[in-house]
Design a protein around this nucleic acid. Structure first.
Length: 484
RNA sequence: GACUUGGUAGCUCAGCUGGUAGAGCAUUACACUUUUAAUGUAAGGGUCCUGGGUCCGAAUCCCAGCCAGGUCACCA
């Protein structure tokens, strides 16, 4: 145990000996918060309104028998308090606990309740004069002390590993971190509000799946004892949402926590959140416009809370997969280019080829090599080759291209959308090509029953939040990122 | 998995070509009844990530490992 912990536990016992419960179960009144106090400070002073608030102590300045302290509450604002035993009820004047309250017993990090009045100090600081005080919860772990002057932080708590492992501490100490998660919550809220205007239905589909489908990634594997068989955490919910469109819903969506047993980097966490939306009787062109309107809606709602440089007002340009690839590579390839030719190109450009020279992988590798860092966007890349889009509907006049687009912003893939392939025969063919062993036959059965023309989209919520909060790392927008 | 950067007090960080482990804040004690990064004086606090090696001597050099960040690969 830490030295400072031992000291604080000793204090805890001393407090208890004085008859004070450091973790009381008393009732206490709260009638406002610090944010409201700061907004209405003049009124509150004029009316000498009684203030009942709680908060966590961030700083203590002892001045002889007077004490100044700063507390912060759930409204994320700080206010200064002034403590002098003479302002308490007279019966406490000779009380050892109250005499030494901030010299010995209360610390930075403690959560307190106070009753008092607002006044202005000599240096014109709005301050609450404490008349009653109650310790609500004692902090017995030393919290990093961040000091702030003129908005500049000193002695930060910025060790990434510690911030992520002890997010609760990060949230207490770093207001920026907390703001990110407030923005995250708002983004999700605004998406729900926007979708409700179209009467799209929010649904829950299985996280535990018998066949992990809808994407191609290594799943986390578990085991069902009663069924005596393997069961998988979903890598995608796509095939289930399409079943629901088959079932007659016009629009369904789910904020889907997906799990992929792959490695971690600044854009990937083993569990991540994708918003999937499927709308019947629409296609990918419609979805391009819809996505733009959605982003614009979120942006306008958040405009005064965030500071990002992306301009969502302009129309999002769209360019075909092979057009942009040829533009940046000076090649002249298309969906018909042979595998042999693609391999030649890869070798010529020193593109590392993985995955046993599969054609779909090679195309992907070539695209990433030439275009990956040039998609500042916002830009739609459309008309992806069919070979890398096994669930997307082919184009009217070209079976080798699909009605698919992806949204890129700051070189990051934010969303992936396509008109859904609804021909069960074609879908089965593509499944067989991809993997003969794990075909979701029930999904094929659903397609046989009939999926109306439908468009679907997956939006990476973690990445979207990172975009809106200027976070370069996805871990910054996931409360408890995976750590070893 | 590959390459690379880092791991020193509760926090933020110094520590040079190897020679007694450092600072600020935090903590403790004292002083101070309107301070605000409060101030002043003093004190305590270290498995220098772990394990080996080289050396008279290792936080420092070498090797292996652990953890984290970055880049790449995997994530169609």
């Amino acid at each position: 145990m830490l030295e400072q912990e031992l000291i604080k536990i000793k204090k805890l016992k001393e407090i208890e000996l004085l008859g004070i419960n450091p973790y009381p179960n008393k009732k206490y009144k709260i009638n406002t918060n610090i944010r409201k106090i700061l907004i209405n400070k003049k009124k509150i002073i004029n009316n000498q309104k009684k203030i009942y608030i709680t908060g966590r102590i961030y700083n203590i300045r002892n001045m002889g028998y007077s004490t100044f302290l700063d507390i912060k509450d759930y409204s994320d604002n700080k206010i200064q308090l002034y403590y002098n035993i003479n302002n308490l009820d007279k019966k406490y004047i000779n009380n050892k606990y109250y005499i030494n309250l901030f010299k010995k017993y209360l610390d930075i990090g403690d959560i307190i309740w106070i009753y008092g009045n607002l006044f202005i100090t000599k240096v014109k600081e709005y301050t609450i004069l404490i008349k009653k005080i109650l310790l609500l919860s004692k902090c017995i772990y030393p919290i990093p002390n961040v000091k702030i002057k003129n908005g500049k932080e000193y002695y930060k708590f910025n060790n990434l590993e510690k911030r992520y492992r002890m997010r609760y501490l990060d949230l207490i100490v770093n207001q920026n971190s907390k703001n990110i998660f407030i923005i995250r919550s708002l983004i999700i809220k605004y998406i729900r509000i926007y979708f409700s205007k179209f009467n799209y239905i929010e649904v829950d589909t299985p996280i535990l799946q018998n066949i992990p489908g809808g994407a191609y990634a290594k799943p986390f594997v578990s085991y069902h004892n009663k069924f005596k068989k393997k069961i998988y955490l979903r890598i995608s919910n796509e095939l289930y949402l399409k079943r629901l469109i088959v079932g007659g819903f016009n629009g369904v969506y789910e904020f889907s926590r997906n799990f992929r047993n792959e490695s971690i980097d600044r854009l990937h966490n083993p569990e991540f959140t994708i918003l999937e939306l499927y709308v019947a009787n629409k296609d990918y062109i419609w979805m391009m416009k819809f996505l733009h309107k959605l982003l614009l809606y979120i942006y306008k709602k958040l405009e005064n809370k965030i500071n990002i440089k992306i301009n969502f007002n302009k129309k999002i340009k769209s360019i075909s997969f092979f057009d942009i690839l040829n533009k940046y590579s000076n090649l002249n390839i298309n969906e018909k280019t042979s595998k042999k030719k693609l391999i030649e190109i890869s070798i010529k450009n020193n593109i590392l080829l993985n995955n046993k020279y599969k054609k779909d992988k090679i195309i992907d590798d070539i695209f990433n090599y030439f275009c990956k860092n040039k998609l500042k966007g916002p830009i739609y890349i459309k008309n992806y080759p069919t070979i890398i889009s096994p669930l997307a509907k082919s184009k009217k006049n070209n079976k080798k291209l699909t009605e698919r687009f992806e949204l890129f912003v700051n070189n990051i893939e934010i969303a992936n959308s396509y008109t859904e392939l609804n021909d069960p025969r074609e879908q089965l063919k593509r499944f067989k090509k991809q993997n003969k062993n794990k075909i979701d036959k029930d999904f094929i059965k659903a397609l046989k029953i009939g999926l109306p023309p439908t468009v679907g989209i997956g939006i990476g919520i973690d990445r979207l939040v990172a975009l809106f909060t200027n976070s370069s790392n996805i871990q910054e927008v996931i409360l408890f990122p995976q750590m070893k």
